[in-house]
Design a protein around this nucleic acid. Structure first.
Lengths: 241, 241
DNA sequence: AGGAAACGTAACACTGAGTGCAGTCTTCTG
DNA sequence: CAGAAGACTGCACTCAGTGTTACGTTTCCT
């Protein structure tokens, strides 16, 4: 069994000679996803994946640390990209984090088909769900550490950092899940933008700029021109803090 | 090996005959924690645990579904207690959830020694950390489902439910972690109370009572008596919504 | 009390994930 | 072309987890 050196699978009609650089990794992921979907995750052995990929069993474990890692092949790289984005960003904390969420969501949107297959798979397999949760926690930890520094001076800083990190991750996951549930349609990135803005508005912890939330006490004559009153309130609300 | 029926371990000087109901479970957990702490989690085999507990290997798996389950023996029951608490509670959503957090924290506080041993263990073992995160997610899901119903009418209801659930879990974990980090001292329950109150105050999503956040536009004559102005503002702020 | 059901425990055999190691083949480079 | 680097393979091994059957004890029912 595991008949090695079997050059059978090459469906894509490429003209160039078989550039066998490291397509093994790709073949393995495709074979794995295919088998997982058809037989279920638990019923698929690593042996079966290796055989279908035309690869030795040991080679599977050279590319992926475990059977479940094949379902989330590049999360590690994504965490890295998010970290560097935050390290390089100089904008307001919540804006930087919103940018980080955008990076993550975009990576899902880049291949909707794969995202949906993974979604169906994780929905049906408790083990994979746990693994995914562990990944999400990685992002949350990165966020929390990032905010810890910026919230150093505010009263409940470290706790606020944890809460805002958890909240923003929840926002992202909510938007992503809605998108997945409706089969990948609609403007998920727009919804994320809207959702982060909503979060920013609704959660009083965010510390945009500096100082506490403003309260404007305006005193007018009771015969003030209504139009002028509206204009003044508008200007005061829109003014930079 | 695995010398069975070895009635050696009975350190507690009970007078009654060895009521061998299910002390095997207790013996297993104690043996496991002991070996995990001394040799590390990965280096301890289930065989070794069973042998030290004076029990057959198969018996271990009759009591615990997996090697890691022995570290979190009664989380399932705790999730159940939290669920029923929420189902029975008729107070304001956030108060009910604060009560749920109190239940969870109290269960840690009930046995500080065990909590601290578990903490050290999970800190040093990635596999156990993942498992713990999965448990936390269970609570968050229960919270989120609970809030989903109560936030059915507000604009961003489902998302607010996710965000508040995540935030409250983060609050709990923060308080718990602080308590664990300082070795189990101080009034953790009091801190939790304070922290949930702070969350309630700071997060505008909480929807205590009903209706959106108020904006009061007050118009006064410019020769208003300052004391009267202060009094009126105080009364307006303190008024029930 | 006698007997049956329920349960905890035990022993055995088996599958399958993951690891360590030693060796082979491919490919890139001087 | 030789040689180094790295990808791939084969094999043997450990250990987690499962299914099954069987045995003893406890408990509960008649």
């Amino acid at each position: 069994m595991t008949t090695a050196a079997d050059p059978a699978a090459e469906p894509s009609g490429d003209a160039d000679p078989p550039t066998r650089r490291s397509d093994a990794r790709v073949r393995i992921t495709e074979a794995a996803m295919d088998l997982f979907e058809r037989q279920g995750y638990a019923a698929t052995t690593v042996d079966a994946i290796a055989e279908q990929a035309g690869v030795a069993r040991r080679t599977f474990f050279h590319h992926f640390a475990s059977k479940d890692a094949v379902v989330f092949p590049d999360h590690e790289a994504l965490v890295g990209r998010v970290s560097t984005h935050l390290a390089d960003s100089s904008s307001e904390p919540v804006d930087a984090l919103a940018g980080a969420l955008r990076i993550v969501l975009t990576s899902y949107l880049a291949d909707p088909d794969l995202a949906l297959r993974r979604y169906r798979l994780t929905r049906s397999t408790a083990e994979l769900r746990e693994r995914e949760i562990a990944w999400v926690q990685r992002y949350q930890l990165v966020f929390s550490r990032y905010l810890d520094v910026r919230y150093a001076d505010v009263p409940q800083g470290p706790m606020a950092a944890d809460v805002v990190a958890a909240g923003l991750v929840a926002v992202h996951n909510h938007v992503l899940r809605q998108w997945l549930k409706r089969g990948g349609g609609g403007d998920a990135l727009g919804e994320l933008e809207e959702a982060t803005a909503w979060f920013d508005r609704s959660v009083g912890l965010v510390q945009r700029g500096h100082g506490p939330r403003r309260i404007v006490l305006a005193v007018f004559d009771d015969d003030v021109d209504p139009q002028e009153l509206v204009a003044r309130v508008r200007d005061a609300s829109a003014a930079p803090r």
